[in-house]
Design a protein around this nucleic acid. Structure first.
Lengths: 111, 111
DNA sequence: TTTGTTCATCGGCAATATACGATGAATCAG
DNA sequence: CTGATTCATCGTATATTGCCGATGAACAAA
């Protein structure tokens, strides 16, 4: 979590993949995204009622997702609506596909 | 990183996605995976020569990838060869596809 | 046995992540 | 203005991550 290696400049996609992955690195955030991406669509802080965690904790997780660009928040006083950022979502799909997709590389057994 | 919420039991895919994501959460690990998955295939500790980090640090990153099941290591004294775990790789692709893939959910503007 | 190579693990330090309760900010109803 | 609602942020405690140098373990060659 330091990344002080200035001599190692990562490729853009390496940075973006790791950034998005860091946002997905906690199961509760995966769940939140599933809820938002699912049929229910644009959600609000009712998440507080669906997830047994303190409101402040959920708010923090939402902030992490927000910072990663995966969701958007729109103010609808006194509530806030969160929804998937579709553009970022598509980018994520594209990047992860390009990453996991190609079945390149030979098997390890040979040699 | 505590996850003491016993009342919140995550779905298997939520756990697996977050586990794999945690492994991808550092750009240097993404790079290592790219190197291993790329044309070069089964690599060894020559990574030490390709990444400007201490040998112990790289070894730690390899362990993280190993624990996440994304790579395998085979001993070939006095070296160790690492390669992608193709099975896990396919599972990852499948899970991330199912996660990012569906363009479900209406736009946020309505309502 | 001794030496050299390769890699993992240990100890230590600083930074981040995660959780909570409490408090602050914004808004609307009365 | 007062109070209620909703959500973000602060402060704090603890666990984890990430980095390094140093050391340990395994093995082959001399």
């Amino acid at each position: 979590m330091q990344r002080t290696l200035s001599s190692l400049d990562y490729a853009v996609d390496e940075e973006v993949i790791s950034t998005i992955s860091r946002a997905l690195a906690h199961p509760v955030r995966v769940r939140i995204l599933k809820l938002l991406a699912g049929e229910t669509c644009c959600f609000t802080g009712e998440l507080t009622g669906m997830i047994p965690m303190a409101q402040s904790t959920i708010s923090q997780h939402l902030k992490v997702l927000l910072d990663a660009g995966l969701i958007q928040g729109r103010i609808d006083p006194p509530k806030v609506k969160y929804c998937i950022d579709r553009e970022r979502w598509r980018l994520a799909e594209e990047l992860f596909m390009g990453f996991f997709g190609p079945e390149s590389g030979a098997a390890c057994d040979g040699d």
